[in-house]
Amino acid sequence: MKTMELVFLLIFFPVTLSVKHSLKFFTTASSGVKNVPDFVAVGLVDEVPTGYCDSIRKTPEAKQNWTQKMFEDDPQHLEWYTQKCLLTQYDYKAHIDILKQQLNQSDGVHIFQRMDSCEWDDETGEVNGFVQFGYDGEDFLAFDLKTLTWIAPKPQAVITKHKRDRDRAHNERWNYFLTQYCPELVKRYLELGKSSLLRTELPSVSLLQKTPSSPVSCHATGFYPHRAEMFWRKDGEELHEDVEHGEILPNHDGSFQMSVDLNLSSVTPEDWRRYDCVFHLSGVKDNIVTKLDKAVIRTNWVSPSEFPAGPVIGGVVGLLLLLAVCITGVFIWRRRDNGFRPANSSDSSSSDPSSVKDAALN
């Protein structure tokens, strides 16, 4: 009965798959690091680099054709990025000096980072965002968008938290940026770069295994966008034990790859048919389901029974004979230093010892 109800709901109330798009900014200021710019800022839309600036170039650089078009069509937008790049680097260098004093730190390598991002759901219109600061590789301060206050994960950041909490106008500007300005930028970028940003590419999925006792890896490559998930199931239920999820990694062509491993050490061969691997790409209704089948697993492993023992043994014997000859030769030449002559030398005692040494080296 429940199955029929589910079918009825799917037919008359079809599921709409929404996609969440994001715009992220990564900003890094450093002190004491040689041979690199002491300020770098990068922007990404849906994990695709869109712009870049640093303390040497001063002017933002478009990383995509559609980013360049946005700069050309809207000079004020380019000016906004330019000012953010110039002003932020001076502010952040000052932040490092202040933090060094607060934390009683000496000169040396210090890094101050900020990551801010907004996310927009293209179906529901829901918007979310965050701002997070880091210092010397650790979380330092985070913005709570719901309360418009700051969170200090470390006692050293409490002073900065109280200072920022009192600046209500500044917090309201962050609220405006994360909930209004940033999502509008996302929509503009998506419209200009829709041919690449809104494309959908399904992956090829393979089952891989190093040895018969190794975990079976379900590997998907060539998919786009990066918003995807993959998991193993048993009897239609997602597995959480004996499963190891890999990260989503970029390919050289702009697509992505990922894998998820399943440990089968406690699974009998008869139960393999109960397992399958599921790949789901955000925005795509149908999943890619791959049954766990030993016949389709790809591996480079060769069983001992199939190993070409004859040629290998022959090769090993040949190498051993060659090694024996080499050792014998070395032994004879070492004995030569104690008065013995090479086995193939003539009886002429007028041979120049230096010429024999040269011959041995040639």
Rank of each mutant, 00 (worst) to 15 (best):
L141V: 05
A157N: 05
L145R: 11
T179L: 14
D121Y: 09
F143Y: 15
E191S: 11
D136C: 09
R164D: 00
G193E: 03
Y176W: 06
D165S: 08
T124E: 02
E184M: 11
K154A: 11
E138G: 04
T160N: 02
I159W: 13
T124M: 00
F140Q: 04
A169R: 11
A157W: 04
W150K: 02
A142I: 00
R166L: 11
L141C: 07
Y135T: 01
E138Y: 09
R168W: 06
G125R: 11
D136A: 07
N175P: 01
H162A: 06
T124S: 15
Y135G: 00
L190H: 10
L145K: 08
K163Q: 10
G137L: 07
R168M: 03
V186I: 15
G134I: 01
K163G: 04
N128P: 07
D167Q: 11
T147L: 04
D139K: 13
F140Y: 15
I159E: 14
G137V: 06
R168P: 01
E172R: 12
G134R: 14
D121E: 04
R166V: 00
E172I: 04
N175M: 04
V131C: 13
K187A: 08
H162Q: 11
H170L: 13
N175Q: 10
W120V: 02
R166P: 00
G134A: 12
L141E: 04
N128S: 15
F140D: 04
F130R: 11
A142L: 07
Y181R: 13
L145S: 14
L192N: 08
D165E: 07
A157D: 06
K161H: 05
T147G: 01
Y176H: 13
H170W: 14
G137Q: 08
P155N: 09
P183V: 02
E126I: 09
Y135C: 01
F143T: 07
H170N: 12
N128V: 06
D122I: 08
E184Q: 14
D144I: 04
R164V: 00
R188Q: 15
L190T: 05
T179C: 06
L178P: 05
V127M: 07
P155F: 06
L148A: 07
P183F: 08
L145D: 09
A157I: 01
T147K: 13
Y181A: 13
K187L: 06
F130H: 13
E126P: 01
K187R: 13
D121H: 07
N128Q: 13
F133Y: 15
V186G: 07
F140M: 11
T179F: 03
W120N: 00
V131G: 09
Y189I: 00
T149R: 14
G134Y: 09
I159H: 14
L178N: 01
K146I: 03
E191K: 15
L178H: 08
H162S: 10
L148C: 09
G193N: 05
T160Y: 02
N175S: 12
N128C: 03
T149G: 00
G125F: 06
Q180K: 14
H162E: 11
D139T: 10
W150E: 02
L148K: 15
W150A: 03
K187D: 00
W150P: 05
Y189T: 01
K187Y: 01
D121G: 04
G129H: 09
R166W: 02
G193P: 03
L190G: 06
A152E: 09
W174P: 03
